[in-house]
C-alpha cells in the first residue's frame, strides 16, 4: 500500500495562514515546530511536513479503517540528503517512510510502510489543463489533487 500528497504552494498561500496564532500547535509536534522555526524556508518546511503527514495518513487510514483528524499523532523526522528529502513518520507503533520532492510551485510526498517500496513508486504529476480525463481508469495506487495539480502514484 502506498500514499501520496501534493500541495500546490500558490493555493496553500491563499488558503492557509499557518502563522495564525494557535495554528502550528494543532498540527505539529514541538519537535516539528522547532524544525519550522529554525528552517531557512519556513513556508516550504510547513508544507513538506504537512504533505508527509497527509501521505502517511492516506495509508494508515486504509490499513486501520480509522478516520480522524489527529495531525499531531503523526510525528515526522526528516533525514535530508543532497537532492532528496527523505523522512520517517511514526504513528502509534507504526513507522512509515517518505520521500519528498519540491519545486517552486509544489511540494509532493510519497509514502510507504517499507523503505524499499519507495524506489518502486512511479509518480505522474499533471498540471492543469493537462489532467487525464478519466484518471480512475488508470487505477493509481493513490491520488492527490490540490489546486492546479493532480498527482497519481503507482507502486
Amino acid at each position: 500500500m502506498i500514499g501520496n500528497d501534493l500541495v500546490d504552494l500558490d493555493l496553500a498561500k491563499m488558503q492557509s495562514n499557518w502563522r495564525r496564532k494557535g495554528y502550528l500547535d494543532k498540527i505539529f509536534t514541538p519537535a516539528e515546530q522547532e524544525l519550522i522555526n529554525t528552517s531557512n524556508g519556513a513556508d516550504e518546511t510547513v508544507w513538506i511536513l504537512w504533505s508527509m503527514k497527509e501521505a502517511v495518513y492516506k495509508i494508515h487510514n486504509r490499513i486501520t479503517g480509522v478516520r480522524n483528524f489527529a495531525p499531531t499523532s503523526l510525528a515526522c523526522c526528516l533525514t535530508q540528503s543532497n537532492d532528496k528529502i527523505t523522512g520517517l513518520v511514526c504513528i502509534g507503533d507504526q513507522i512509515y517512510f517518505t520521500e519528498t520532492t519540491t519545486s517552486a510551485s509544489y511540494v509532493h510526498t510519497i509514502a510507504a510502510p517499507l523503505f524499499n517500496q519507495l524506489s518502486n513508486i512511479v509518480i505522474e504529476i499533471y498540471a492543469e489543463p493537462n489532467h487525464p480525463i478519466d484518471y480512475k481508469s488508470l487505477a493509481p495506487g493513490c491520488v492527490s489533487h490540490h489546486g492546479r495539480y493532480l498527482a497519481l502514484v503507482y507502486g
Partner: peptide, 14 residues
Amino acid sequence: INSANLVDIILDVE
C-alpha cells in the same frame, strides 16, 4: 473542505 483548513475551522470555533 481542504484538510489544512479544518484547523482554521477549529480555531474559529474556539
